[in-house]
Write a protein that binds this DNA or RNA. Structure first.
Lengths: 140, 140
DNA sequence: CTGGATCCTGCCAGATACTG
DNA sequence: CAGTATCTGGCAGGATCCAG
């Protein structure tokens, strides 16, 4: 049995259970993936993986996030226990964010995904070009 | 060096390059994750991991997706070369979707993530309850 | 059966200004 | 510095109808 098979099987069970039973679908996997699958969460986790950082540092590291979304993303991640937030009552105040042990435990599985993305990106890009080319051929 | 460190380092390099250079951010990792991070893609991949399936089968397997989004998700995945689409000119027509080799290569890294989600879900849930409780305490 | 096309809506997230 | 508050537009995505 391949390493993936067990996860697939488990996942399928969630799906079928949810699909059959009444009530809104509630699959732990979906729940978690919805969180870390959003636009900025993984970016934050990876950025904090290097070292704990303050709000402004994070903002500089990821320039194209708004303060609003930065705040929200950090709060959500803190809520899920993936990052820690430590306030220093200096003046002006400073806040340091860092990975919790739970957050660190996510690094390895996430690295596997990043590794995949990195290695397969050229394949994906090629597939896109091919697909778009074919679509254009059809349309003309 | 931990397995994650290399990925983190590579990722950070993308970030800094993108942040420094002009032009819109373009990080392969972000690009790929945006795709598989959307609401339905992973669900589709996992569902197709068991066996190739037809449009209606997929719709039944994931009841809470609309036809519109099912079509769109499948087309995007096909565009990226993750799934294959085979049309049988029967009548009425039937179309079978399946994982491409590239799609299958995603199963292992994705399984790692699902495994993590499954094992850590209770921790995350507990953290949420704790956080929300603390927030309530503050507000009253 | 497998979609495409169209209309319509909510909410997500960016911009901007303000605060402790 | 580290956020909040408010307003607003765009677009993701549902519902519905149509077509091959």
């Amino acid at each position: 049995m391949s390493p993936a098979a067990s996860a697939i099987e488990r996942f399928t069970r969630y799906q079928s259970d949810d699909a059959q039973s009444a009530g809104p679908v509630h699959c732990p996997v979906r729940d978690v993936l919805d969180r870390i699958g959003d636009k900025w969460s993984i970016l934050m986790i990876m950025t904090l993986a290097t070292r704990p950082q303050r709000f402004s540092e994070l903002h500089r590291a990821v320039r194209d996030i708004s303060k609003r979304m930065l705040t929200q993303t950090l709060r959500d991640l803190e809520r899920d226990g993936l990052i820690t937030r430590q306030v220093f009552p200096t003046k002006p105040p400073s806040v340091e964010y860092g990975l919790s042990p739970l957050g660190q435990s996510l690094l390895d599985p996430m690295a596997a995904l990043i590794d995949w993305a990195d290695r397969r990106y050229s394949d994906i890009h090629a597939a896109r070009v091919r697909f778009d080319g074919a679509a254009r051929d059809v349309s003309r």
